[in-house]
Amino acid sequence: MSEASGDQVGIQFRKVNKWFGSMHVLCDIDLDVASGEKVVVCGPSGSGKSTMIRCINHLEEYQSGSIVVDGIEVNNHKANIDRVRRRVGMVFQNFNLYPHLTILDNCTLAQRWVRGKSRAEANELAMHYLERVRIPDQAHKYPSQLSGGQQQRVAIARSLCMSPEIMLFDEPTSALDPELVREVLDTMAELAGEGMTMVCVTHEMGFARQVADRVIFMDQGSVIESAPPNEFFDNPREERTQRFLSQILH
């Protein structure tokens, strides 16, 4: 287990608990993600993995414990939430692009209104990232004109335009047709290669093996196992992890 070393800590969960009504969805989560580390989170549906990463940028609140991102406590203070969201980008299962804006405008809206950039500056950076995800030629189309894989790559570019230090991926390939999964995973792997801190909820175990520094298994709101990919896949310690892996690895 690669423990975070000192001030390099990017994300720190300490005894985090969350309830939806009477349902205990996060139970005493302790987790450290070092700066530059790539963590893949897996687990059965309803295990709390999406809820867990959504707490990192305060899309979900938690009731007890603490989450610290780059030294900033994630709590209900607006200023803190803003600071955290400046550092943390997020990509969603359903892309969540703005349907009424072109691809280019999808990538510039937040740059212009959150960062106060001029249209020209924002366009330039947007094109830079659209080239990186290899769809600069689609810049003037609308999301509905793109395939799912292309839309998800736009969503990644849109996040990168805000120059995040940490990227969260919430099942980024689950809504894609199988033949489109590869292009999105390749984009993510490239990003990982460039040293981005990443937390990724996914069931793409090939991706986990290739990219992750650490794989985390969650079940019923708890972190059950956390290990480097080789150890995790070849010698899982926990019985629940073994059962889960035997179900998905065919």
Binding site: L59, N94, Y98, A110, A155
Partner: peptide, 15 residues
Amino acid sequence: DIRNASASLGLRAWH
């Protein structure tokens, strides 16, 4: 869901 996208990009509610 699109609200979450805006939030994660740091857009203010009125934006």
